[in-house]
């Protein structure tokens, strides 16, 4: 189960995500991102409430980030819980997508 709360601004939107980013919730995540209005310059994906991920969830995250970048929208994954960041690190996701786009909670 995944809950996504959107806090909107003019050019920046933050998607506060909580629950599980996995095969059962990736469509919901993708849809949320696709529905974002045009004219944005930055999207923050707040992972504070994410408890679990799976390979489909991570694959979708990479795809979403690449899609947003193609639309010239800066994307940041913020407040990543340490355990989730460990998984990202095992897959070298920050290295692949740019360390500066990932912000881990200490």
């Amino acid at each position: 189960m995944l809950e996504i709360a959107t806090s909107s601004g003019k050019s920046l939107i933050c998607l506060k995500m909580s629950g599980e980013l996995d095969i059962s919730t990736v469509d919901q995540f993708r849809l949320s991102v696709e529905r974002l209005p045009d004219g944005l310059t930055e999207v923050d994906l707040d992972f504070f409430g994410i408890e679990f991920v799976d390979s489909t969830g991570i694959g979708t995250l990479i795809k979403v980030m690449n899609d947003l970048r193609e639309r010239e929208i800066r994307v940041m994954v913020i407040r990543i819980p340490k355990e989730i960041y460990e998984v990202f690190d095992l897959l070298s996701i920050p290295e692949l997508m740019g360390e500066e786009s990932f912000e881990c909670l200490d």
Partner: peptide, 20 residues
């Protein structure tokens, strides 16, 4: 890893290998 779910690997581990 306790934060990594294996739900999507029931049909095969291909997704994980592909991702890596």
């Amino acid at each position: 890893h306790h934060s990594f779910k294996l739900n999507d690997l029931h049909q095969g581990e291909g997704r994980l290998f592909q991702l890596l």
